[in-house]
């Protein structure tokens, strides 16, 4: 606990160079992110709202280590077994609750406000695959959700502006469209592919680490490679063509992000 709180002060730098998470937690956050995306889809949320919710969750997961909350401290062994039986049918697990709070907050941040009742119902249905029927349970879930929202705000702390890579991607796609031979975009599903890759990129926690414009370039590079489209550039030029889109992206870093993107599918 103490070690984590001392590292908390200079967290911004520490987090940006942190190695990718081990596979286990990688899988965990993936299932939660999928939960967020599925709930978002059922709520008919905008793309950016879901993206924001996943960003919030990744930020929470990262901050969580720094803050060092150990919920096991509050365990009381005597009633553990009794409660264990209940959870199979009732309520939502912690991370799903946090994810729902992320969605609630993201809806407010992106001017895509959800009805809180609808949100709870959808989150419950997404997790349990059945409707929430008990009104008392609804009220307790709602109380938890509202408390969690405040707690989430304190953990995340209003720090970053959370820019999304989507608008960069749109600009870059347009630039590349004018760059490539006229029929390239008609023959290859570059736009759709990029958009899918972008959504999947949010499964990895690199979305909070990397700059949004860098992620957009990496997504574009990936989709071009997958379609086997080669961007025409001067053969003698020592500058990679991506520098034209985003000058401060080193090629080594680009490779890193592309690898991280590909890791999502491994």
């Amino acid at each position: 606990m103490e070690a984590s709180s001392t590292s908390g002060s200079d967290n911004g730098q520490a987090r940006s160079v942190m190695l990718p998470q081990p596979t286990e937690s990688h899988l965990v956050s993936r299932s939660i992110i999928l939960f967020i995306q599925e709930s978002g889809m059922m709520l008919e949320a905008k793309e950016l709202t879901v993206a924001m919710a996943t960003l919030l969750f990744h930020t929470y997961a990262n901050a969580h280590d720094v803050v060092g909350i150990d919920l096991e401290e509050s365990t009381e062994p005597s009633n553990a077994s009794a409660a264990k039986e209940e959870t199979k049918t009732r309520g939502l697990p912690n991370d799903q609750m946090v994810a729902a709070a992320c969605l609630l907050l993201a809806g407010k941040m992106e001017e895509n406000h959800f009805n809180i009742r609808k949100l709870i119902n959808v989150a419950y249905k997404t997790h349990h695959k059945e409707e929430l029927r008990d009104i008392n349970e609804y009220y307790s879930l709602r109380g938890d959700l509202l408390a969690l929202e405040l707690w989430l705000l304190r953990i995340i702390g209003f720090r970053s502006n959370f820019a999304h890579p989507h608008k960069y991607l749109v600009c870059y796609l347009k630039a590349v469209k004018d760059w490539l031979p006229p029929d390239t975009f008609a023959r290859h599903p570059l736009v759709t592919l990029s958009w899918c890759l972008m959504r999947d990129a949010y499964l990895s926690e690199m979305v909070v680490r990397e700059k949004p414009e860098h992620i957009a370039v990496a997504v574009l590079v990936c989709s071009l490679r997958l379609c086997k489209v080669v961007v025409p550039e001067e053969s003698r030029s020592d500058r990679h063509w991506t520098k034209g889109l985003c000058a401060d992206l080193a090629s080594a870093q680009l490779d890193n992000i592309v690898n991280a993107l590909m890791d999502i599918y491994s």
């Binding site: 919920l71 365990t75 912690n94």
Partner: peptide
Amino acid sequence: VSPARNESSSSSQSSRNSFFK
């Protein structure tokens, strides 16, 4: 706090039980 491994670890399950459930 992670829920996805609640099958494997009963202690993690109990921890979240006591927190919310």
